[in-house]
Amino acid sequence: MKNVVGLFVAIILLGWIISYWEVIICVALIAALIWGMYALGVPWWRKRQARSVDRRNGETARRSALAARAQIQHEQYLVGDDRGLYGDYRPVDL
Rank of each mutant, 00 (worst) to 15 (best):
M37K: 04
G6N: 11
I30M: 08
Y89Q: 08
E59R: 08
A65L: 14
G15Y: 02
P91D: 09
V27G: 02
E75K: 09
D81Q: 04
A10F: 10
W35D: 04
A70T: 05
C26Y: 03
G58Y: 06
A32F: 10
A31P: 00
G58M: 08
R62C: 07
V92D: 09
Q71S: 07
Q71A: 13
Q49C: 04
L78R: 07
L33H: 04
G6M: 10
I24C: 01
L78A: 06
F8A: 15
R55M: 12
E59C: 06
G80I: 06
D81I: 05
A67R: 09
S64K: 13
Q71D: 14
A70H: 01
I25N: 05
W44C: 05
Q71W: 05
G58V: 04
T60I: 15
A39F: 14
S52A: 13
M37Y: 09
N3D: 13
L66M: 12
A68L: 11
R56T: 14
F8S: 14
I25P: 00
Q71G: 02
E75I: 09
Y89C: 08
S19G: 08
G6C: 09
R51I: 09
E75R: 12
D54R: 07
A32Y: 05
V92M: 12
S64D: 15
S64M: 13
I72L: 11
I25S: 05
A32V: 13
V53G: 00
I18Y: 04
Y20I: 04
N57D: 13
I72P: 03
D82W: 08
A68Q: 10
D81E: 08
Q71P: 01
G41K: 03
A50P: 02
R63E: 13
Y77W: 12
G15C: 06
L13P: 01
L13H: 00
G36A: 15
Y20P: 00
L13D: 02
Y20E: 13
A70G: 00
G6V: 10
V23M: 05
Q73N: 14
V42R: 08
Y86Q: 03
L7H: 08
D82V: 11
W44L: 15
S52L: 13
I12V: 15
W21C: 00
Q76V: 05
V9H: 06
I17E: 00
N57V: 13
A50N: 09
N57L: 15
Y86V: 06
R51P: 03
R83I: 10
H74E: 09
Y20H: 12
R63A: 09
K2V: 11
I34C: 04
I17Q: 02
Q76W: 15
W16K: 01
M1P: 07
R69T: 11
L78P: 01
A28E: 06
L33D: 03
Y77I: 00
L66G: 06
W21L: 01
L33R: 02
L7E: 14
I11W: 02
R46K: 14
A68D: 15
Q76H: 09
